[in-house]
Nucleic acid binder design. Sequence first.
DNA 1: GTCCAGGCTTCAA
DNA 2: TTGAAGCATGGA
Length: 289
Amino acid sequence: MADLEWIPAPDFDLEQTLHSGQAFRWVPHEGGQIGVIDRTPVFLRARDGGLEVTRGATELASHYLALDHPIGEFHATFPSHPYMLAALEACRGLRILRQPLWECTAAFICSAQKQVAHIRQLQDKIAAAAGELVGSIPGRDRQTQLFAFPSAEAVASLGEQRLRSFGLGYRAPNLARSAELIASGSLDLEALRPLPTRQIRERLIELPGVGPKIAECILLFGYGRLEAIPIDVWIGRILRVVFARGRAIKAARMPEYAARKLGPFAGYAQQILFHHARQTWPKGTSKVA
DNA sequence: GTCCAGGCTTCAA
DNA sequence: TTGAAGCATGGA
């Protein structure tokens, strides 16, 4: 990788941050990770307690990677439950990204009832079909092309049938419709930034395919609302099995329960628990409950 | 072949 | 307000 500059990145784990199910388009490359932030191809590699970054992209990357988050302060608010402490020990350098709003929204509309590996595949297909080519990686066998994630307009113009052909299934009409609503200006994701979390949530849920869980994902990974708590099957399981010791929690009570257990930076705690459980719990995990 | 996946929507009760 | 069924597709 030619032309890199080094920036300090204390308390930061590149792999855990980029491969913990919050972003889906980073690929390992030459000991680091390569991907696209907005429309800029970026290479990242950990070295000497910091990061090597594509020259010219350090500011963009620092913001995206949330290197300014005082995560020590966040960690101090986490519950002192042994499982939380073990997860934190394993994922201390994991940070919540600041992702582009539309890319994040589209990715999580695709995520419903999908495994992380498959979500990644879907994002790649959408980007390759409609995204701008912004770079390429020379490889042994063939060049790998880097695409920006396509705008809402570009995704809308793909249309439902084309999206279906990528394997989106019943998510295809949802993504197509949401893309249309955003492309037409009916919903302006950027304009929501200054609003209170509750109001952003209400607007996000207007999008087809965005329900309570996916809205929390967009709030957390896009809008940086660190109190947001996506409750998926994993987090539901962790809350029930670990924190409630097997006691049933009604679905409707789950958000309140999670907020109370996990504290003011629940989104951070949630992501660490999620990533840790996915790495350590056996496959076919419903048996754990 | 079976089970499950970072759920959402619709429709009863 | 709550609960269950249906929804497409691919990985394990």
